[in-house]
Each structure stands twice: as structure tokens, then as C-alpha cells.
Amino acid sequence: MRVGVVGCGAILPQYLQTFAGLTSVQLVAVADLEPARAEAVTADLRGVRALTVDDLLADDEVDVVLNLTVPAAHAEVSLRAMAAGKHVYTEKPFTSTTEQATQVLDAARAAGVLVGCAPDTVLGTGVQTARKAVDDGLVGAPVFATATMLTPGHERWHPNPDFYYVPGGGPLMDMGPYYVTTLVTLLGPVASVVGAGSRTRGLRTIGTGPREGEQVPVSTDSHVTAVLVHESGVLSTLVMSFDGVATRAPNIEVHGELGSLVLPDPNYFDGDVELCTLAERDAGWQVLPVSAGYRGAGRGYGLADMAVTPAGQQHRANEELGFHVLDVMESVLASTASGASVPMRSTAARPAPVPLGDLA
């Protein structure tokens, strides 16, 4: 697939590094609302053109649009790309709302194009090794899981953190996709959720860059706790916070009747998976050998996986999974407002497992 990127922000360099090692995708064009940013990207990339957004969407040399815009623009750019006959792969979240996501799904079916959605970190050896352990019965029947993401706030390092603190942002919508996607990959889709949220202060102070010292207003919850009831009956406890200082809690734990797993940070593709079994509890935690997933994966592997998946088969970082993850997060926020349990309006099949191997 020949790739055109819309949005030349902070995440793009990670995709560029990945594309340099892949043969299934080829970057041919980039565009940004600020033309100088697109031109700066192409300065060191032979054969890659800097275009306007309109010109990129109309370019016959572009097969798929990689949508790296801010979340509020995901739906608009994806819809425009599909109207131009392009496949689409978008950064997380899929869109800002499930209403927008429904429009994107309908448009994709009408246009007959493929749609993919980050995060693709679940395709790496970390989450896939853990999934194989669960599927192979190393923990027995899963009972519950915990997922914890805690940081003092992105304003400490991000020069323009405003979008993290408005509706559509916050710790759940920003970092939740990594954790919820991992939980669905491991334990299956979610049937209902109940959540609660809070915010500790109304202003955040930017800690770096040209706006250092400027204060950003907060209009969304900066701490969210939820319980996800999976269709299988497994319960996952989710803690997403921009209000904590530090934690010793593992990013994700899965507990079953026969054992417990500790996973690496789902924001990354690899890392150790540790197992402690009931039968060998005195031996403590043991690191499992890497047994599944794409070796050496990086951001963009979801797009490459979409490119190599045979026709008629569902690629792994697909639109149904992206929609379901968004539905889970939106429902959690609805529950924080109402105090009631919220049933899911969607479901999604667990993506196909990734055998241990190289996509590059």
C-alpha cells in the first residue's frame, strides 16, 4: 500500500522509523494544516512529497490515508479520505464519539474500503505472549484483571497539552485505548461497564516549551475508575489517572484459577510477561519465553498487517475493534455522569492471534 499521511505531529517520527523497515507499505506523501511542518518532514525523505490535505486526498498515488490528526479531526479526515476512495488507518481513538464512528463504519461499507485503527501495540510480542499464555490455559479459567495507568499529567512534558483536558481527552480517552484494547484482546469483548470520575484542579500549568508557565483549563475528568464486565463474565478493573504521582501497580494483571500474569506496558510492543502459578507459588514470578507476536514491531504495524492480510480475512487492528473500544470508553464516561451501569451497544471478535515471526 502507498501511504499518504495527514497530520505531521509528534507521533509521526515513530511511524517513519517503522516504515523504513517494511516492504508492505511505502510512504509517498504527507500533509499538514501547517505546510511548513509537512515540508520539514520531506526534507530528509527521498521521493516523499509535501502536499496540501486536499491534494493528498485527490492523489491517485495514495492508496491509504494514515490519519494522524488530533482526535477531534479523526472522523472528518477519515470520511473525506473514504469519499475519495482511499483506505484509512487512524490513530487512536477511532473517532471522538460513537456517533461519528458509526458514520465512518457506514461510509467504509458504502465505499468498499478497508479501515484500521490504532493502537497496534497489541500485535507485539508482549501482549501476544500473554494472550498465548491465557489461550494455552497457563492461568486456568480467567477470573479478573486489573489495568492501571497513572501519571501526574501530560502538561509536564507536552508543549501544547490543551486537548488532553477537554471532552474527548482526559486519561481515559488518551491512554485508555491501549489498556482496553489489550483487555479485549486477552479476555474478549465487554458487555457492560460502571464507572466514576473526578478532577483535582481546574487548571494545569504547562511545564515545557514556548508556553511554559501558561495555564490550561480542565473541562473533563482527570481521574477515571471503572469495572468492565466482559461477555465471558470476567471482571476488569480499570484505573486511568492524570492525578497521581507514582504507583507500584503493574500496568496489567490477569488472574485465573490456576495462575496470574503480569504484562508489560501496553503502550509498547514488547517487554517481559511474568507468570506465577498456584502449583509453583513458592517459586514466585517467572518470566515466560517470548512465544507470539511480531518481533521488533513499532507504530504502523497495524497498517502493515492490514496491507498483508488476505482478502476476505479481517485484519487485526480493525474498525470493529476500534469502535468497540471507543464504545467501552464512552460508556464508562456516561456511567460516571449517571452513576448507573451502562450496557454496550457494540461487540467485537477477538482479533486473530499473531504467531511469533517477523513482518519486516
Results as ranks from 00 to 15, higher is better:
Ala110Asn: 06
Ala84Asp: 04
Gln286Ala: 14
Asp120Trp: 03
Ala29Met: 09
Asp358Tyr: 11
Arg248Cys: 10
Thr237Phe: 15
Glu231Val: 15
Leu105Trp: 08
Ser198His: 01
Gly4Ala: 05
Thr52Asp: 05
Pro152Gln: 09
Leu123Trp: 06
Thr129His: 02
Arg109Trp: 06
Lys86Ile: 07
Pro351Leu: 08
Val122Ser: 07
Gly112Cys: 09
Gln103Ser: 13
Val41Tyr: 04
Thr151Gly: 00
Asp60Glu: 14
Ala249Met: 11
Pro355Asn: 08
Glu39Arg: 14
Val77Pro: 09
Gly176Tyr: 03
Tyr294Met: 03
Ala29Asp: 08
Gln314Tyr: 02
Gly284Lys: 11
Ala50Glu: 05
Pro93Cys: 01
Glu76Arg: 15
Pro210Leu: 07
His315Ile: 08
Ala317Gln: 08
Pro171Ile: 04
Ser78Tyr: 03
Ala110Arg: 10
Gly300Val: 02
Phe323Gln: 03
Val227Glu: 14
Leu56Phe: 11
Val122Leu: 11
Val227Tyr: 04
Ser192Thr: 07
Gly209Thr: 10
Met329Ile: 11
Val180Phe: 00
Gln17Leu: 08
Arg248His: 14
Ser236Phe: 03
Leu235Ala: 15
Met329Arg: 05
Leu275Glu: 02
Glu330Pro: 02
Val143Leu: 15
Leu57Ser: 09
Thr121Val: 04
Val224Phe: 03
Met344Pro: 07
Arg131Lys: 05
Phe19Met: 13
Leu359Ala: 01
Pro13Gln: 11
